[in-house]
Amino acid sequence: MVSEELHERVRELIRSIPAGRVASYGDIAAMASAPTPRLVGRILSEDGHDLPWHRVLRSNGTPAHGLARRQLELLRAEGVLADGEKVSMREYRWRPATD
């Protein structure tokens, strides 16, 4: 069971990712002090319909299974270009202190 405070902290961080930037599940987990990146994925799948979910990727820059085409389309519309199905985390990763 995840606390409401942690749940909202994760949602707020995802909401804060600017257009044209991405973060990994692990990035969000670390910033929110969540115990695991999987918790971030679970929150997104259960309560992320109103968030920019497409800006959250696996740490290697690949999109979620089953959502890859839509996720990459949404990112492309924001100027985030993938090489095949992989986004360069080095180029597009969101760093809150600098963005």
Rank of each mutant, 00 (worst) to 15 (best):
Arg70Ser: 13
Pro96Glu: 10
Ser24Lys: 09
Glu91Phe: 10
Leu74Pro: 01
Trp94Lys: 08
Tyr92His: 14
Thr98Asp: 12
Trp94Tyr: 12
Gln71Tyr: 03
Glu78Ser: 10
Ser45Val: 09
Ala30Tyr: 02
Pro52His: 07
Pro63Trp: 13
Leu13Glu: 00
Leu39Ser: 05
Glu5Asp: 15
Arg76Gly: 00
Arg55Tyr: 09
Asp83Ile: 08
Leu44Val: 06
Gly84Leu: 12
Arg58Phe: 15
Val10Ser: 07
Trp94Glu: 02
Arg58Leu: 10
Arg90Val: 13
Thr62Trp: 05
Ser88Val: 10
Ala82Tyr: 00
Gly84Lys: 11
Arg42Ala: 00
Arg38Ala: 12
Arg21Asp: 06
Leu57Tyr: 13
Arg95Leu: 15
Glu5Cys: 01
His49Pro: 00
Tyr25Arg: 06
Arg76Gln: 11
Glu85Trp: 11
Asp27Met: 14
Gly79Glu: 04
Val80Pro: 00
Val87Ser: 04
Gln71Glu: 06
Leu44Gln: 07
Ala19Asn: 02
Arg9Met: 04
Asp99Cys: 10
Arg55Val: 03
Glu78Val: 10
Thr62Phe: 06
Ser59Asn: 06
Ala23Tyr: 04
Leu74His: 02
Glu4Gly: 10
Glu4Asn: 06
Glu78Lys: 05
Thr98Ser: 01
Pro18Lys: 02
Asp83Phe: 13
Gly20Met: 05
Ala82Trp: 03
Thr36Ser: 15
His7Phe: 14
Ala97Arg: 15
Arg93Lys: 15
Ala32Pro: 07
Arg15Gln: 10
Leu75Ser: 07
Ser45Tyr: 11
Trp53Asn: 01
Ala19Cys: 02
Asn60Met: 03
Glu12Leu: 09
Ser88Arg: 07
Ala64Ser: 14
Arg58Tyr: 14
Leu74Phe: 07
Leu6Phe: 08
Val56Ile: 14
Pro96Asp: 01
Gly79Pro: 02
Val2Arg: 11
Arg58Asn: 10
Ser16Ile: 05
Leu44Pro: 08
Glu73Phe: 12
Met31Tyr: 11
Val22Arg: 09
Arg11Ile: 00
Pro37Ala: 04
Arg95Ile: 11
Trp53Val: 06
Glu5Ser: 13
Ser3Leu: 02
Ala29Asp: 03
Pro35Asp: 03
Lys86Met: 13
Glu46Tyr: 08
Thr62Ser: 12
Glu12Cys: 07
Ala97Leu: 14
His7Lys: 12
Gly84Val: 10
Leu6Asn: 06
Ala68Pro: 02
Asp83Cys: 05
Gly41His: 04
His54Ala: 12
Ser24Pro: 08
Gly66Pro: 08
Arg15Pro: 11
Val80Gln: 00
Val22Lys: 03
Val56Trp: 07
Arg38Thr: 07
Val56Cys: 12
Met31Phe: 11
Leu81Val: 13
Pro63Ala: 14
Leu81Gly: 02
Arg42Ser: 09
Pro37Asp: 09
Leu74Ala: 06
Pro63Arg: 08
Ser45Phe: 11
Gly66Trp: 01
Leu74Gln: 04
Asn60Arg: 08
Asp83Leu: 13
Gly26Cys: 03
Arg76Met: 02
Val87Arg: 01
Asp50Met: 07
Ser16Glu: 12
Asp27Asn: 02
Val2Ile: 15
